[in-house]
Structures are given as structure tokens and as C-alpha cells.
């Protein structure tokens, strides 16, 4: 009897033992597969991120090339051609037997042209980088930008600033300026708005830039709007600023951008 009981106990123990092993391996297999899934998910996310970075880099390069192209055009059209005519007129001055009136006429042309070329070179330099930012900081730069746009008259911009940009790292100033330029450009081109407000304020969370226009807005869920070069540029600047962008817009209800950094 005892023997049989012992055998029974041993058998039960063996069953339990196997049951444990089975359960254990089931757990292991489960952990293995779920981890694999998590890692796969992570890889997928990374790949997405990399693809996104690539589109941003492409956007940066594309913009750079466009800019270069424009600058080359400007230099050729405004500077080279201008100087060519100045040179021709100087040769004209050198021709013998000119009367006083001819001399006066040629000299005036040279002066006029020199002024035009000077203006163009100033404009080209200004387009590249408004000197005011470098000399007087972001606040003055934005003020100038706003003033220039307001003078055109297509729309009016209200600019409020409650903080001191000196606290903001200097290399960030240009990014903020370019983002604003791009946003204003978008509003001018697409929104049909007549008012834009730009508002900077700071709380315990950090700096907040509110930008809104009262234009026709757009459908934020429609990815067409994200694909524009301008928007990609804004995105890449935002990632350089390590900021966060929230876009809020509905058709016919204006657009609001919040940049938090």
C-alpha cells in the first residue's frame, strides 16, 4: 500500500514538475514573442522618424538651392548687368570730342546706375539676412518685418511681445525669425486674411509664441498642407529649436499656430 502511495506521490510530483516546466516555457515563449513585437514596433517607429528626418533634410537642401538660384539671378540681373552698363558709359566718357551736354548726360547715367546697383546690392544682402537682427536683436528684427508688411497694406500685423529675447540663446533668434517669415508668407499667399497677430509670452512652462490669422483656414487633417516646402521648413526649424508646434485651424475660421519652446 505504502509503496503504491509513494509511487502515486512521485507521479503527482512528476506531473506537477512537468506542468511547471510547460507553464514556464509558455511564459518564456510569450515574453519572447511580445518583446520581439515591441522591438519590431520600435524599429518601425525609428524608421518612420528617419524617413521624416530625411524629408526635412531634403526640404532644407531644396530651399537652400532655391535661395542660391534666386541670389544668382539677382546678382546677374541687377548687379552684373548694372555694372556692365556703368562700364560702357565710362568708355563713352573716354571717347574724344564730347561736348559738355553729352558729358553731363553720360555722367548722370553713371551716377544713376551706380545708385541703382547700390540699392540692389543692399536689397540682396537684406533679403539674405536683415542686418537689424544681427545688430539690434530679434525684437527689432520682427518689428521691422511687421512694419514692412504693414506698409504693403495687404494685411495688418499686430505684434505683442512680453519677454526679453536676450534670455533666448542667440542662435535661436534666426530660427524664430525665419519661422515667422514663413508663417507670414503663408498667410499672405494662401489665407486671404486681413489681420495677423503675433504674441510672445512666457510662463513656468517656457516661451510660447502664438501666431494667428483671420483667414480662410484649412483642414489640419488634410496632409496636403503639411507637404509644402514652407511647412517643412518650419518643422525643421522647430525641431532645431527643440520646440513643439500645435496647429489649430478650421475652414473659414482662421489659423492658429502655437510654438512652445
Amino acid at each position: 500500500m505504502e509503496n503504491i502511495e509513494n509511487v502515486e506521490i512521485i507521479r503527482v510530483i512528476i506531473y506537477i514538475f512537468f506542468a511547471f516546466i510547460l507553464m514556464g516555457s509558455a511564459v518564456l515563449v510569450f515574453v519572447y514573442f511580445s518583446r520581439k513585437k515591441i522591438i519590431e514596433q520600435k524599429i518601425k517607429n525609428r524608421e518612420k522618424e528617419i524617413a521624416h528626418q530625411k524629408t526635412l533634410i531634403n526640404a532644407i537642401i531644396e530651399t537652400q538651392e532655391k535661395e542660391r538660384n534666386r541670389i544668382a539671378q539677382d546678382l546677374h540681373d541687377d548687379i552684373s548687368s548694372g555694372l556692365n552698363v556703368v562700364a560702357i558709359n565710362c568708355y563713352m566718357l573716354k571717347t574724344p570730342n564730347l561736348d559738355y551736354n553729352e558729358q553731363l548726360k553720360i555722367t548722370n547715367t553713371i551716377l544713376e546706375l551706380t545708385n541703382k546697383v547700390l540699392q540692389s546690392s543692399r536689397r540682396i544682402a537684406h533679403d539674405l539676412l536683415p542686418p537689424v537682427i544681427d545688430k539690434f536683436g530679434l525684437h527689432e528684427g520682427i518689428k521691422e518685418l511687421v512694419e514692412n508688411i504693414n506698409n504693403i497694406g495687404q494685411l495688418q500685423i499686430k505684434y505683442n511681445n512680453h519677454l526679453n529675447f536676450d534670455d533666448l540663446a542667440h542662435e535661436k533668434h534666426l530660427h524664430v525669425f525665419r519661422i515667422l517669415q514663413e508663417l507670414i508668407n503663408n498667410s499672405l499667399k494662401h489665407s486671404e486674411a486681413n489681420t495677423i497677430t503675433i504674441d510672445f509670452n512666457q510662463d513656468s512652462d517656457g516661451i510660447k509664441l502664438h501666431y494667428s490669422d483671420n483667414g480662410k483656414g484649412f483642414d489640419v487633417t488634410n496632409s496636403v498642407h503639411k507637404k509644402g516646402l514652407g511647412m517643412k521648413n518650419i518643422e525643421s526649424r522647430i525641431s532645431l529649436l527643440q520646440a513643439k508646434l500645435t496647429v489649430d485651424s478650421k475652414l473659414n475660421q482662421g489659423t492658429h499656430f502655437l510654438i512652445h519652446f
Partner: peptide
Amino acid sequence: DEALFRSGIKFILERE
């Protein structure tokens, strides 16, 4: 396409 350039060239050439 640059009118001022043309008139400059014309002036110089027609001295010949």
C-alpha cells in the same frame, strides 16, 4: 534686353 546697355553700345559703335 537691357536698353541702357544697347544705347551705350550703339553710342560707342557709331563713333566709328
